[in-house]
């Protein structure tokens, strides 16, 4: 393990955090640091998320929020039944979500399994949309490190601009934080220039304290993004979990100066949900994160709902699912 990051005490961070100005090394320090993170007030986090979720976003603000949300979508297909044809159809949709309306922004990225990256890269050539690939034996993360690294290298070689890796939840829950850290740094190295998104799978981490610890662990190991879930485990992304992760990236930037993105994924199906996440970002991490570069929504069915709402705003009549692609 090789990391040297300077931590400074920040007023926002509270007293409980044992943040040292000394330069520290080693697994023992990592464990001590993560154990020393202040605990999360679960009731408070849920209440805060619920309160922010009750904000009313209407008319022009809603129209802007919908366009912003569309531009933040990582359009995802992660099924065993994915075919090259389905991936090409998804890429066409990513580049022009509503074929009848050219003013709809394109999505941020297309997210596929690593063996379909080359298909997506060819289909998206010239559109400016990145290809994200899940790797490291997604979704369980149960494979030897060599297999995970080979998976990552193959995806990068095929042209993936972003890698979504899963952490070893078993090692994390067993307390083997050094193993999780080393895996992330190894995968980060295998990524080369590709962005690394680290999936914490918060639905399996049991507590918000663990979510905070895993967030810091991933950021210290070099993650460019922290992502809530694979979408294969319930509960997937929730507002309180995302709130805790947004606080973590905010505090991490205050401590180190490096900005890390956040991506909630799974279970975000309606425009209302998406707008709630945007409010949460703005009120927690701040407007710096309110761009596709720093905040993504991992979803597939969400896009159709955003498009339906957008068409309702532009035509004045309610639209129906018959008028949008099935995916």
């Amino acid at each position: 393990m090789s990391t040297t990051i300077r931590f400074v005490r920040t007023a926002r961070f509270g007293d409980a955090g044992e943040v040292s100005t000394e330069t520290l090394n080693g697994a023992a320090e990592l464990r001590a640091f993560l154990r020393g993170l202040p605990g999360v007030d679960r009731v408070g986090a849920e209440e805060r998320a619920a309160r922010l979720a009750s904000r009313s976003i209407k008319t022009t603000a809603k129209a802007e929020a919908i366009d912003l949300a569309i531009s933040m979508v990582d359009l995802t297909t992660l099924e065993g039944a994915d075919t090259p044809g389905k991936v090409r159809a998804l890429c066409a949709k990513a580049a022009r979500p509503d074929p009848s309306d050219g003013t709809v922004p394109k999505v941020a990225a297309v997210c596929v399994y690593s063996d379909l990256v080359d298909v997506a890269v060819r289909a998206l050539a010239g559109t400016g949309i990145g290809v994200a690939s899940v790797a490291t034996s997604f979704p369980s993360g149960r494979a030897p490190l060599e297999a995970k690294l080979a998976d990552t290298r193959a995806a990068v070689a095929a042209g993936a601009a972003e890698i979504d890796m899963v952490i070893d939840r078993g090692a994390f829950l067993a307390g083997d934080l050094g193993k999780v850290f080393d895996e992330i740094t190894a995968v980060k190295e295998a990524c080369g220039t590709a962005h690394l998104k680290v999936i914490l799978e918060t639905g399996e981490l049991a507590t918000l304290d663990n979510v905070r610890r895993a967030s810091w662990l991933a950021m210290r190991a070099g993650a460019d993004f922290i992502k809530t879930s694979t979408g294969k485990v319930s509960p997937a992304a929730t507002l309180p979990v995302t709130l805790v992760m947004l606080e973590a990236v905010r505090d991490y930037r205050a401590a180190t100066g490096r900005q890390v993105g956040v991506k909630p994924a799974g279970g975000i199906r309606t425009t209302k949900d998406a707008v709630r996440y945007l409010v949460l970002v703005n009120e927690t991490a701040g407007p710096d994160w309110l761009t596709p570069e720093w905040f993504r929504l991992g979803a597939s069915s969400l896009l159709n709902d955003l498009l339906m709402q957008r068409r309702k705003l532009s035509t004045g009549v309610y639209s129906g699912p018959d008028y949008f692609t099935l995916d």
């Binding site: 004045g316 009549v317 309610y318 639209s319 129906g320 699912p321 018959d322 008028y323």
Partner: peptide, 9 residues
């Protein structure tokens, strides 16, 4: 009017 114009009716 909302039902009459609804595209899914």
């Amino acid at each position: 009017p909302w039902l009459a114009s609804h595209m899914d009716v």
